[in-house]
Amino acid sequence: MKRHESLHPLTHHHHHTLVMAQKLKKFSDSDRIQPTTREIIDFWIQDGEKHFRDEEEVLLPLYAQYESVDQPCIQEMLIQHVEIRSYIRQIRMNQSSKPDLFRQLGALLEKHVRLEERTIFPMIEQAVPENYLYQANGQYHRDSHSGY
């Protein structure tokens, strides 16, 4: 899917999130929990948390200047942000069965990325003038994997 150049950093973040999602969805009861727990926490600290802030504090406020954010798809996006944060918190605090939690988190991460890439980003690209999209690009965090 062709994405506006200014959103490439967020799309790169999404690619790394999908890699993590696939790993988590395939997590089996025989896999080692500790290394996966550490990988999830590192992923969240280095990129996930900052990515959500990029969307919530830069991208959506920019979009709100041109269109209403009171839309079911944006509400779903923000609810998913809360749910993902809850999963991360549970993993960090060892509050439940991790293999099931890992698989559930993986499925939600994939669903979330698909929502943003297929629905939210196209809406933003259509509504926000190109020069403002470029200005927002300079406000995103740098991805720890690619530096993008």
Rank of each mutant, 00 (worst) to 15 (best):
E67V: 07
E57I: 05
L78D: 03
E76A: 14
Y63D: 07
Y87F: 15
V82S: 10
Q75S: 11
F52C: 09
I45E: 11
Q75T: 14
H51T: 06
L60S: 04
R85S: 13
S68W: 01
I45T: 11
Y63V: 10
Q71H: 15
S68V: 00
E56W: 01
D47R: 06
E49K: 14
E76I: 06
I40G: 02
P61Y: 08
S86H: 11
F52G: 03
E49D: 12
E56I: 02
D70N: 13
E56N: 15
M77V: 02
L62C: 10
E56G: 12
I79A: 13
L78P: 01
A64Y: 03
S68F: 02
E55N: 04
L62A: 11
R53D: 10
L59E: 06
Q71R: 15
E55W: 01
R53A: 12
D54H: 02
R53M: 07
K50I: 04
S68T: 14
R53F: 07
E55Q: 04
M77H: 02
E56A: 13
Y63R: 08
I79Y: 03
S68N: 06
K50A: 14
E49I: 04
Q46D: 13
L60C: 01
V58I: 15
E83W: 01
I84P: 02
E83R: 12
S68Q: 05
S86A: 14
Q75G: 04
E56F: 03
P61R: 10
H81W: 06
D42P: 00
A64R: 12
A64G: 12
P61I: 07
E67Q: 15
I79H: 10
W44S: 05
H51M: 06
D54F: 03
Q65P: 00
I74E: 08
I41L: 13
Q46T: 08
K50S: 07
E76G: 00
F43A: 09
M77L: 15
E57L: 11
V69D: 04
P61M: 08
I40Q: 02
Q65V: 00
F52E: 14
K50V: 03
I79N: 13
I41G: 08
E83Q: 11
Q65S: 09
D70R: 09
D70C: 04
P72H: 06
E55D: 01
F52M: 15
Q80F: 02
V58S: 06
P61C: 09
I40N: 02
L59G: 08
Q71F: 09
H81Y: 06
D54K: 05
Y66G: 07
Q65C: 09
D42R: 10
L78C: 12
Q75I: 13
I40C: 10
D47G: 12
I40M: 07
Y66E: 10
P72T: 08
I45F: 05
D47F: 00
D42I: 04
L78A: 05
Q80R: 12
W44E: 04
I84K: 03
F43T: 06
R85E: 13
Q80M: 11
I74C: 08
L62K: 05
V69A: 01
R85K: 15
E67R: 15
